[in-house]
């Protein structure tokens, strides 16, 4: 355990490749030490991600469940991870995102009717949101120094743009919901996101 903790202390500097290799080690030989290192870094982030949902009453019960569910899936799906397609941290974020969608949907369903069984054949988030997009080449955005560059640029964005981008990506609010919560016209939300993405030079054609 001390080893894993030590990793988590210095892992702010860990390269994306470090996480890729740990996922691959889990995939190849069910490596528990590698998995524990992933856990030490990502479990607290997944919990933090749960606490970002706007409904805090839900967040408390969500956090532990989301973290456990996400990490179980990381273990079970490690062999489907392809480092050519995305960085491990993006892959884990995607799994957490999908799991959060499903847990929130399940909760909403339970509130609507208590006796409705969860249909095994029903679509789940991973049917609609692939863990990794089926692209042939890794986009430069996932490469080593790209994360640093983008984070630096995010911090240079005007406050109003950062707020919206974070609301959308972390709190799980759509453009429409963000416009309601922030009391802004939908058009303003759209144009701020567009401007932010243009500045980050993420998409050619936003």
């Amino acid at each position: 355990m001390l080893r894993a903790m030590a990793i988590s202390d210095k892992d702010k500097q860990a390269s994306p490749k470090h996480w890729n290799d740990l996922v691959l080690a889990v995939a190849r030989k069910r490596d528990r030490q590698a998995f524990q290192a992933l856990f030490a870094h990502f479990a607290p982030l997944v919990k933090a991600y749960a606490y970002k949902v706007s409904d805090l009453a839900q967040a408390d019960s969500l956090a532990e469940e989301l973290m456990q569910e996400t990490m179980v899936k990381v273990w079970l799906k490690a062999h489907t991870y392809n480092p050519q397609k995305s960085a491990a941290s993006t892959w884990i974020f995607t799994i957490a995102r999908n799991t959060r969608i499903d847990l929130l949907r399940k909760n909403a369903k339970q509130w609507e009717s208590n006796n409705e069984d969860f249909d095994e054949n029903a679509l789940s988030a991973e049917d609609i949101w692939a863990d990794q997009q089926d692209n042939d080449v890794l986009e430069s955005v996932s490469e080593e120094h790209e994360q640093e560059r983008i984070l630096e640029m995010i911090n240079k964005l005007p406050e109003d743009q950062i707020t919206i981008v974070k609301t959308i990506f972390l709190e799980g609010l759509s453009h429409t919901e963000a416009s309601e919560q922030l009391g802004l016209p939908l058009g303003t939300v759209k144009s701020r996101v567009r401007l932010a993405l243009q500045k980050l030079k993420l998409t050619i054609d936003v």
């Binding site: 960085a87 974020f93 990794q132 986009e139 996932s142 983008i150 995010i154």
Partner: peptide, 11 residues
């Protein structure tokens, strides 16, 4: 995929 990376950076 690019936007998912952006999300994961903030994550």
């Amino acid at each position: 995929e690019q936007l998912s990376s952006l999300g994961s950076f903030m994550f």
